[in-house]
Amino acid sequence: MNSRVGLLLLFLSLVGVCLSAPAKTKHQRKRVIHGRPWFGLTPKPTVKGPLNPGVSGDQYIALKVDHFDSSNTNTYQQRYWYNDQWYSAGGPVFLKIGGESAQDNSWLADADLLLTKLAAENNAMVFLIEHRYYGKSQVTPDQNTANLKYLSSRQALADIADFIPAMTTKFNLQGAKWITFGGSYSGALAAWSRMLYPDLIYGAVGSSGPVQAVVDFV
């Protein structure tokens, strides 16, 4: 068999595979990015009816724009939510860390998630913070290239370190053990926060967190 015939047969076999594959519906295509669900591996909760008692609406805390430049005194409003319906004195505090998307309080209102099930079992207070630059937690007026210098994991981890003492004081949580939660990128943040701030964070649950640096991370 000459090379041209071989290439032709290979081409036809590939066409056959493509034609035999089931076509994705318009709905499926909209919900898949590079073959991966747009929401990651856990779908965003759908909470029907009124929210559980104890679930807050949007809350805001003023945090530093740049945690590592003492000459920069600017702050931004970081959005967060809490659910205190299961909490009793002496219980732990769970902190769900938002990743690279806008957040909302449905993550705290869905009682079927691992986070909320554990909270109910352990009488935990639960918080969710939105990552800087996502949703309504905007650090700068726009996201031009110069303004993106404050978008980093290092800054986000420092946000967590300032958030915990502020909430401890606001909600009278002195002595409570804080546990961070996250998945994928926020799973890495959960683990890194425990490593960087062991005086603030007792433990971490980091699911599928890419904690090792990868240069070409497609």
Rank of each mutant, 00 (worst) to 15 (best):
R36I: 15
P37D: 14
W38H: 13
F39P: 03
G40S: 01
G40P: 00
L41Q: 14
L41F: 12
P45A: 09
P45S: 06
T46A: 04
V47P: 00
V47K: 01
G49N: 13
V55N: 03
D58G: 02
D58I: 09
Q59L: 13
Y60L: 01
Y60T: 05
A62S: 15
V65P: 06
F68I: 13
F68M: 09
F68Y: 08
S70E: 10
S70L: 07
N72R: 04
N72T: 10
N72E: 05
T73N: 08
N74V: 05
T75M: 00
Y76T: 12
R79Y: 00
Y80H: 07
W81C: 05
Y82K: 03
D84E: 15
Q85F: 06
Q85E: 11
W86P: 06
Y87Q: 13
S88N: 14
A89E: 11
L95I: 09
K96E: 12
G99N: 05
G99S: 08
E100Q: 11
E100L: 02
E100Y: 10
S101L: 07
S101N: 07
A102Q: 14
S106R: 10
S106P: 03
W107K: 00
A109G: 00
A109W: 00
D110E: 13
A111W: 05
D112S: 11
L115G: 08
K117R: 10
L118I: 06
A119N: 01
A119W: 01
E121C: 11
A124Y: 11
M125E: 05
M125P: 00
M125F: 09
M125L: 07
F127I: 15
I129W: 02
E130Q: 15
R132E: 06
Y133H: 15
G135C: 08
K136N: 13
V139I: 11
Q143C: 12
T145F: 14
A146L: 07
A146K: 13
N147F: 07
K149M: 11
Y150C: 02
